[in-house]
Design a protein around this nucleic acid. Structure first.
Length: 803
RNA sequence: GCAAAUGUGGUGGAACGGCAUACACAGCGGACUUAAAAUCCGCCGGCGAAAGCUUGGGGGUUCAAAUCCCCCCAUUUGCACCA
């Protein structure tokens, strides 16, 4: 009889063996076939590892372990995204230095990850708040600055009233702060911006070069929001500049019955003298200014606005005078801040026209504009539109743009929703921006040999009341000299956002200890691009877009040799609590990985998280399910007691064993971990039915199972007498010939319904099979007296169609 | 409002257009035990008297649909006047 399955001692034993053998460290031999597997590195929060982390980690740990057994030189690194607000907020509350808090949290994470048995290359562990790391984050920023991609702009920013920090548009959720939920107000500040918009086209087009799951590609495209249309200048009497608008529907210009400008539009000021109701207009502007962007969109249902009385625009297609309105449903930040309104074919314009009693002219036939705007581009035919009449929408768009360009009124134009990346944070716990301001020379980068520009030590990490970072109080640090002219200068006191360090960490892993450059070019050329990147769905817009942007920039300046950082991107689903809600301290429903590993073992936890359901779906936790996986481990453990004499795979078990090899190998690649584990459970059930197992049969199972449950499988491998550890073994190969049987069961359908089953020899001729099937006594009653019109035999299904 | 994803037993979920419910969980029965736990073995979707019907609902394509197409409903997520 075997001893009890003592998961704690077994897991500790093997973790030590792996450590001592350094067996999961990537080799710097660039002649070997390589595989780079990457998981999103965690933010080391004080709460420790969440049960969501092992889901992503185990998935790529499985891939990494399998790849090593397949002979690849695998890089599967780990690090910590260690700058960030939560740590700073904790430091503010407790007075403990964020660097100390971070070091403690990293230690906890590190220990927890080891405890779960992930085969990370710990020799390459890094963290973004390490000066030796952020030295290169700063270096990249300087390069961006030197290439004109970082610039300062006076901008109204989103300012969180509670965190006292500026937020990117993307971090504002429903008018509140993404992190703390406090209201966000607008405040004008001088901010560092990165010109991500310059890369908008390539960020969309190059998605064709990579293998991202569709959902991710779609979200990238939607976020960038490319639209094509035309920029058109509408003439205004006595005002040479005219009014420039952007439209995606140039085909509908004949139906433009009025125009609308954003409340902040400069034309109001420029033509104020001629606007007869200018006082009312000013009043409207002030009212709009008081609303945040969020409120402006919230109040969408009741459209407001007033006409600019006394001025008119000329519709370039019809030559008619049309009124100009001012309304906050038009945003200054998109396009030109002005639109031509075609109420018949745009729902917002339709609503506005109905409310204000403005004319609605149908120019695309096919809908019912008495009822609603007709916006369908596929089926409409142009009417009331001069030379466009009778055309399809798409043809009319082209014809109109040609006409606009020929007559000098407008031009083809592509627009993006994507805006430049607000890169400044008024925070202490981030990378200092390595620039100084000199009265004489302007903004000047710090010389590269002076990097890293370290964060100065301060006692109080709280931002100043005016919203500046705690660095504003580090006056000794701020006052410096200009690297160019030597005169007194001041350092930038804004820091970088969290996204900075995570935008290039996958490069640093290739050569993490390099102190000459961010990574050696040879190492980058060898390891990049990342072969498989997995992470949360919540990072598929921002983080992924930002890091692709930085990568493309570094590609352009010759730092890396490939245009995209990640070849393949997948995303895992979230794990909810057992009650179906998010796991949260406030619901008191958090499951702690430490307790699980203690009670059931790392192997069980890993197996459960992979067995729980489809990898990309959101799934609630189930403690009963964990117990089921533990039971599976015990069943595997007891296979030792069923060992019989003789080696090799028995003939009668060959199909089951090789079928399992095939299924598990394929399913791991497709991230169908749940069905891979199901297949292994079935094989174990087969051994139990048989009541016996040979050494080689068992070893095959152990290897297949090893990526999921690495400790128990190594232990058993040793117990049944194999010297070579599994991590140094070869991945088994399915012998297809073992799967071939001489006989198979077929299901016989009559008119699509299963009426009988029978065994037939494999590879029968169609005619012989037909004869056999039609003679089947169970089938005869169903076909008697009828004509067999068709006989279809595919795989193990036969369908007899009778009439 | 727009977009995407999802919808299959009591539960988590399987199913290259080809026998719907694999594998688990829970439940039930048996063996073992003084007993319980553990373990092992077996049973286990619903409705219907039956023929049959049944993958959110309704249509369609096909010899054959959970799967493909159209319409609708529900849930979740993301976005929200993007011209």
């Amino acid at each position: 009889m075997s001893e009890r399955y003592e998961h704690l001692s077994i897991e500790r034993k093997w973790q030590k063996i792996w450590d001592d053998a350094h067996c999961f460290e990537a080799k710097n031999d660039f002649t070997l076939p390589k595989y780079y597997a990457l998981i999103e590195f965690p933010f080391p929060s004080g709460a420790g590892l969440h049960v969501g982390h092992p889901r992503s980690n185990t998935a790529l740990d499985i891939i990494s372990r399998k790849r090593r057994m397949e002979g690849y030189n695998v890089l599967f690194p780990i690090g910590y995204d260690s700058f960030g607000l939560p740590t700073e907020n904790y430091a503010i509350k407790t007075g403990e230095h964020p660097a100390k808090v971070t070091a403690k949290n990293i230690q906890v994470f590190h220990d927890q990850l080891k405890m779960l048995g992930f085969s990370f290359d710990y020799s390459r562990e890094l963290y973004t708040s390490d000066p030796e790391y952020y030295r290169w984050t700063q270096w990249i920023f300087i390069k961006l600055f030197e290439h004109g991609l970082a610039y300062k702009a006076e901008l109204p920013i989103n300012f969180c009233t509670s965190c006292k920090v500026g937020l990117a548009n993307e971090e504002v959720i429903d008018g509140t702060c993404e992190r703390c939920g406090a209201p966000v107000v607008r405040m004008v500040r001088s901010q560092w911006m990165l010109k991500i918009t310059e890369y908008a086209d390539r960020l969309i087009d190059d998605l064709d070069k990579v293998d991202f799951i569709d959902r991710v590609k779609t979200s990238q495209k939607n976020w960038i929001g490319r639209s094509t249309g035309a920029e058109v200048n509408f003439k205004i009497d006595g005002y040479d500049e005219g009014l420039k608008i952007y439209t995606t529907r140039p085909d509908t210009i004949f139906g433009a019955t009025y125009m609308v400008v954003a409340p902040e539009h400069p034309i109001v000021k420029a033509l104020a003298a001629r606007i007869s109701n200018i006082d009312a207009v000013h009043e409207y502007q002030q009212m709009a200014a008081r609303k945040s962007d969020f409120e402006r969109s919230e109040l969408a249902k009741d459209k407001t606005g007033i006409p600019l009385e006394g001025i008119y625009a000329i519709n370039p297609a019809t030559g008619n005078q049309i009124p100009i309105w001012i309304s906050d449903y038009v945003l200054m930040g998109y396009g030109t801040g002005a639109i031509m309104a075609v109420p018949a074919h745009d729902t917002r314009d339709y609503e506005f026209a109905k409310t204000m009693g403005l004319p609605i002219i149908e120019v695309v036939a096919g809908g019912n504009i008495e009822e609603e705007a007709f916006t369908d581009c596929a089926s409409g035919i142009l009417v009331n539109s001069g030379f466009l009449n009778g055309m399809q929408v798409e043809d009319a768009k082209k014809a109109m743009i040609d006409w606009l360009e020929k007559s000098g009124i407008g031009r083809r134009k592509t627009n993006f929703k994507l805006r430049d990346w607000l890169f400044s944070r008024q925070r202490y716990w981030g990378e200092p921006i390595p620039l100084v301001y000199c009265e004489h020379c302007g903004w000047v980068p710090i010389p590269e040999d002076q990097l890293p520009l370290r964060l100065p030590d301060v006692d109080d990490f709280k931002p100043a009341e005016d919203g500046s970072s705690a660095l504003a109080r580090a006056t000794d640090w701020i006052h410096t000299t200009c690297p160019e002219c030597g005169r007194p200068a001041e350092r930038e006191i804004d820091t970088m956002p969290n996204w900075a360090g995570s935008s290039w960490y996958y490069m640093r892993y290739c050569d993490p200890h390099n102190d000459k450059c961010l990574a050696d070019r040879k190492a980058l050329d060898y390891w990049l691009p990342v072969d498989w990147y997995n992470g949360g769905m919540e990072h598929t817009t921002l983080h992924l877009l930002y890091s692709r942007f930085w990568h493309k920039f570094l590609y352009d300046i010759g730092v890396v040799g490939c245009p995209e950082p990640y070849m393949k991107r997948t995303s895992h689903g979230m794990i909810l609590a057992e009650d179906g809600r998010k796991m949260s301290k406030s619901f008191n429903n958090v499951i702690n990985p430490d307790d699980l590993v203690e009670e059931y073992g790392a192997d069980t936890v890993r197996a459960y998280e992979m067995f729980i359901g489809a990898f990309d779906q959101t799934i609630p936790w189930s403690t009963a399910g964990v117990k089921g996986c533990r039971r599976f481990m015990e069943r595997v453990w007891r296979l030792q007691d069923m060992l019989i004499e003789g080696d090799g795979i028995r003939k009668e078990m060959a199909a089951a064993v090789h079928g399992c090899i095939k299924k598990v190998s394929d399913d791991f690649e497709r991230m169908k971990f749940n069905t891979a584990i199901a297949a292994m459970m079935s094989l174990v059930n087969d051994f139990y039915s048989k009541g016996s197992v040979t050494r080689e049969e068992l070893r095959t199972l152990l290897i297949l199972m090893n990526p999921v449950a690495p400790h128990i499988t190594e232990e058993m491998n040793e117990l049944i007498g194999y010297d070579a550890p599994i991590y140094a073994s070869k991945w088994p190969i399915c012998d297809e010939s073992a799967l071939v049987k001489d006989e198979m069961e077929i299901a016989i359908q009559v008119n699509g319904k299963v009426r009988a089953k029978m065994n037939v020899p494999v590879g029968m001729e169609q005619d012989a099979l037909r004869e056999l099937v039609l003679a089947n006594p169970e089938i005869i009653p169903w076909i008697e007296g009828k004509n067999v019109v068709k006989f279809i035999a595919i795989r193990n299904i036969v369908n007899v169609v009778v009439k």
